[in-house]
Design a protein around this nucleic acid. Structure first.
Lengths: 140, 140
DNA sequence: CCTAATTTGCAACTAAGTTGCAAATATTTT
DNA sequence: AAAATATTTGCAACTTAGTTGCAAATTAGG
């Protein structure tokens, strides 16, 4: 049962020159299916019957981040969130929005953020991430 | 020995209607003196001889955040950083910059970030924070 | 299918932060 | 200024998230 998704994940790994293992394919598929950022435990949960150790999942995420397939999401919570690096340009990721009322966080994939200047007093700025706060549609 | 700083801290607490205790004054003074964001352990260290339990420091920071005197800094590290809410407008905090080479994080107090629009598909946006990545003056 | 390189799982560990509760300290009332 | 009330503090124990070292298992390449 090699789905489209499965093939896609394998291809992504291959072109990143990463060993193509069950764990990595699974993690990548989970992120491809998700419509937002996920924590390690959420990924583990979605892997369901094929259980992987949390260490494996963390290390897999590290590799995926290292080759740029995945990003750490910029969310101020205790645990780390990871998401696919799609909808992200070289210089900017999509913003995350956290509701002040219900506390839920959403990815605003289609919102464009004005880019900052590339230099500031000797700092060379290569990438920016934005976090937003306010009221979500349900709470506004 | 009530310094200027001491008085200032006490005044801030009073106007926020917080009990004015040695711990709170100390934490606030540490943040007033610091030129950037600090972690709990860094604050504890700066309190020196007047030792306070870490629980107290965490709880103090919570109260200060709750009344808006202090903000959590948006830094992607394991520990949380806190900083005074000055140089921050109602809608925006100063950005934090992390160097890809040396890993150090700096507060860019004087950099202005273009503000985003106030509404997006039902989301009411009240506040934004920006994280920057690139090379710092020392590493560029 | 053999070999070398890489990844995995396990168990034990660390770091950061939290909880409940009695004692201590601040503020308000009298 | 003392008593009454409200809030904060310290302690010990605990939780949660993530990390390390290492032997066994898996993958990729000839």
């Amino acid at each position: 049962m090699k789905s489209d998704l499965d093939l896609k994940a394998r291809q992504m790994l291959k072109s990143a020159r990463l060993y193509c293992t069950a764990g990595r394919v699974g993690v990548l598929k989970a992120l491809l299916k998700a419509d937002g950022a996920l924590r390690q435990d959420q990924i583990a949960e979605r892997l369901g019957k094929k259980r992987f150790d949390k260490v494996t999942i963390y290390r897999t995420l590290d590799s995926l981040v290292k080759v740029g397939l995945v990003h750490k999401a910029y969310i101020e919570e205790r645990a780390r969130y990871f998401e696919l690096a799609h909808n992200c340009s070289e210089t900017q990721c999509h913003p995350h929005f956290t509701c002040r009322n219900c506390g839920r966080t959403h990815c605003l994939m289609d919102m464009t953020i004005p880019g900052v200047k590339k230099r500031h007093k000797g700092f060379l700025i290569q990438r920016q991430q934005t976090r937003l706060e306010g009221l979500c549609p349900a709470c506004a």
